[in-house]
Write a protein that binds this DNA or RNA. Structure first.
Lengths: 210, 210
DNA sequence: TAGATTGTTAATCGATTAACAATC
DNA sequence: TAGATTGTTAATCGATTAACAATC
């Protein structure tokens, strides 16, 4: 890649992927920047600019083949090179992700979950084994884990993140609602703040009434 | 408000609120655009620009009083004027939100949850009553509901959104993973796509190896 | 070929950063 | 008062949009 691609573009890629997957399922074979833009609420220009960050997916005078474009974007996002994931904390949210979130669909392989509850260790949730938290460090030593999902109580967040980072986990998907600011070296943190999303919705809702 | 405030600014407000709440809890009384910027990874200029969209919170030569600023931003986000919320679909994710997400902390009041499972109707989750889905329409007729949280199967998404919108629900917080594109009139939809977040993390992780 | 649509360069727009007078 | 820091205007930077030659 010649130059750094902006975060704005990267964050649009999943949306493109989603829309193209839908269109493919609906039986469409081709699209164009104009057509796709109309469906997604983007300008044709922007779509062509975005796609051209990664080289020519289209054909002049024709447009884009949906399957090819979908696969191309999927490949940029790495769907074809799975990373391993563990879930730390099997409470409501952890279980919801284990049971309902299709990690494999997005290029991730969920290998285990960890929880300190005595009753949980040794069980499995939707096929994913739940291990006792005490065995986490050992597990990380013996297994390659690329991403740790944090769905544990706030008070344990930092400790878990540091342990994971030290043991070679390179990505943290953090649902605890507190920001992980600490320097974790090479480890990249993606903080998910559901409250940000709801607060934003609330702002616009209240604005409409006034 | 004289002019329209950009979405970028609005989406930073929850972050300011979070950081200021933390600083207040840590016992700090004052801050400045420079100090706050260093903590949050933003420039002092940007913080002053953002805050001045809403009028002068600061005092020249002094900076900002943390509690005042926090309350001011909280008020802009409407924390002091609660909106009512229901959760539609009490599966894993719905239950996780009901039990763990502090709606009241963000200016929302959770009044009920709905689910079609025979065993659930009549029970309650962390104090929130669970009602049968068949009673949803009647409930919406008789009660003011500002926001509906959608945590039900994908196939039911659009129907639920349309019903809610018709019955006067003005905001939809959609966790189903499919986009709600349909025209719902005045109803504002906030689509939460957890996969977007994970895919973005994956992109950056894979990029570091190559 | 003629029409369509891309890839790409140029123009515009908006957001961020810098600068500085006002003032606590 | 002198120092600090805001509020606000100006400059810069980057992202989006428009335009158009290339070409299928």
């Amino acid at each position: 890649m010649k130059y750094r691609i902006s975060a704005n573009v990267i964050r649009r890629l999943p949306r493109y992927l989603r829309r193209l997957t839908l269109m493919e399922r609906q039986g469409f074979e081709k699209t164009s920047s104009g057509d796709l833009g109309a469906r997604m609420g983007l300008t044709a220009s922007q779509i062509r600019q975005d796609l051209n960050c990664f080289g020519g997916f289209g054909q002049q005078g024709y447009g884009y083949n949906i399957t090819d474009l979908k696969d191309g974007i999927g490949s940029i996002l790495g769907l074809d090179k799975p990373l391993t994931v563990i879930v730390i904390g099997a409470g409501n949210l952890g279980r919801a992700l284990i049971a309902n979130f299709h990690f494999e669909k997005y290029g991730f392989q969920l290998t285990a979950a960890f929880d300190p509850a005595p009753g949980l260790a040794g069980t499995s949730i939707s096929g994913t084994p739940v291990l006792h938290s005490d065995t986490l460090e050992e597990y990380l030593t013996e297994n390659r884990v690329d991403v740790a999902v944090l769905t544990l109580p706030r008070s344990h967040t930092l400790r878990a993140a540091e342990l994971a980072s030290q043991k070679g986990v390179r990505g943290i998907w953090n649902f605890t609602g507190i920001d992980i600011d600490a320097d974790l070296g090479d480890t990249i943190v993606e903080n998910v703040h559901l409250s940000d999303s709801l607060l934003t919705l609330g702002y616009y809702l209240r604005g409409k009434t006034e």
